[in-house]
Design a protein around this nucleic acid. Structure first.
Lengths: 246, 246
DNA sequence: AGGCTACAATGGTCTATACCATTTGCCGGC
DNA sequence: GCCGGCAAATGGTATAGACCATTGTAGCCT
């Protein structure tokens, strides 16, 4: 039954389907450059505008990347990140076969900002660590973590290796504080110049901001963070399960 | 500093911004019809193609709905649904000031399909209820729930009012089974004819499928469901908190 | 009064063309 | 050998116009 089938598929959709098949059958690989718009419009015997409609459709589906003056390229596939699940980032990515890395960009102790003190249920201006950590996959920066933790609760945190170890593994083994749940939210933001420089992108590029307040086994908040994921490298999927260790 | 500012904003983006401002300042309300493309292109003194580019931009941002032959309309705002959070649907929507309703479409007892028995950790072909329930907001069908539950675990379930009561409230108060957590996932699907008819849409319209396996306080699976949300009426946001009752 | 048909209004597809903005590569000069 | 400038290649914006497909309304006929 073809009740929802059109008898004539628009040309630009036919062309988009043809190109998508080339991408999905590995005839074209991520990073490959497509023939130019002018060449493709000759190949498919359509106007350049019709061809552009096809490319725009594929771009909006995340399959193509177009750069003015340079060309059209097959998009790299995005990493998948579990939304709403406290899975150690490094472990999750390594499980996918990626090489991971981390760099501590900032580690300093300062009086908590009012909102931070409030979130962490600390006295006003209580000392906290403010930590910025850059995460890399296959040597490419993809995530900038900014988080705050209480100095009182985690004395001498600097003595631990924050580049090689998960923060939650450190809190569990060194301080007996077990991450058990978290409040998280996702929202798109644009990269500032600072963030852009660290992530190797242009300012204004979209990032996914994951705000997080992690609680320990006594339901006490102990980590307040804002993770900034490159929007062009991640997509978020949702599955809830009992909290894994981090 | 204008390092990311272009000195010349494309005309179609200027027009899109102008129309967006009319929408966001309530000069245009949800459901309002916009002037025709031909009229707008005269108003803004551009070609119809340029005007169409502006409308397409707004459509992709979810602000406009265009229907061939009928016109262009300001989109109704979407309901927000917490992804990954077991909040009773009725309660969540009522809290937003919406009038909710429910209709049981199907309630039957049958031998569990293999996959269902497996998910619910039941013996093969164990008897289960298969329940389809249609949810309405302001008298509009927006969600089709399909779920399975063990007959053995919930004898005489039919005697309870599934239209007025939350399923989890029933399992808690009548059977002492408390929903404590769930595995959930989100994925877009297209409406079948059956689903489309119930939801008042055309077959092929996108739906968001929320698969769910709910566990009780002893970590036993007791409800296996597939919720189909109208994609044009919901968007999903993520925030995790300790599980509320359902 | 209801149903059907036709027409007008509306969005959708497509063409051909021109020009602009960005990127990249090559060539020449230092 | 390196750097800068220029030109070509590429995507982006815009125009003018034609024609197609769908929807809705009005008028006419039963």
């Amino acid at each position: 039954m073809m009740t929802i089938m059109k008898t004539a598929v628009p040309r630009y959709i036919q062309i988009a389907d043809g190109l998508r098949q080339q991408i999905e059958s590995d005839e074209l690989s991520p990073g490959d450059q497509l023939p130019s718009e002018r060449e493709l419009s000759e190949t498919w015997q359509v106007s350049r505008m019709t061809l552009r409609a096809a490319l725009q459709s594929l771009e909006s589906q995340g399959l193509l990347v177009r750069r003015q003056g340079a060309g059209t390229f097959v998009a790299e596939p995005k990493f998948e990140r579990q939304a709403g699940k406290l899975v150690p980032f490094t472990e999750a990515m390594r499980n996918r076969g990626y090489k991971t890395g981390a760099r501590v960009i900032l580690f300093e102790q300062r009086a908590a900002a009012t909102s931070t003190a409030q979130k962490l249920q600390l006295p006003p201006a209580a000392p906290v660590y403010v930590i910025h950590r850059l995460r890399l996959i296959n040597d490419e920066p993809v995530l900038l973590e900014k988080f705050a933790m209480s100095v009182t609760l985690f004395p001498d945190l600097a003595s631990h290796d924050l580049e090689e170890r998960s923060i939650y593994e450190i809190t569990r083994t060194e301080y007996g504080i077990i991450a058990s749940e978290a409040q998280q939210s996702l929202e798109p933001v644009l990269a500032t110049e600072y963030e852009a420089e660290l992530l190797g992108i242009e300012p204004g590029v979209p990032l996914m901001l994951e705000r997080r307040l992690a609680f320990d086994q006594e339901k006490r908040p102990f980590e307040y963070g804002r993770d900034l994921y490159r929007g062009d490298r991640f997509r978020f999927i949702t599955e809830i399960a009992p909290l894994d260790d981090r």
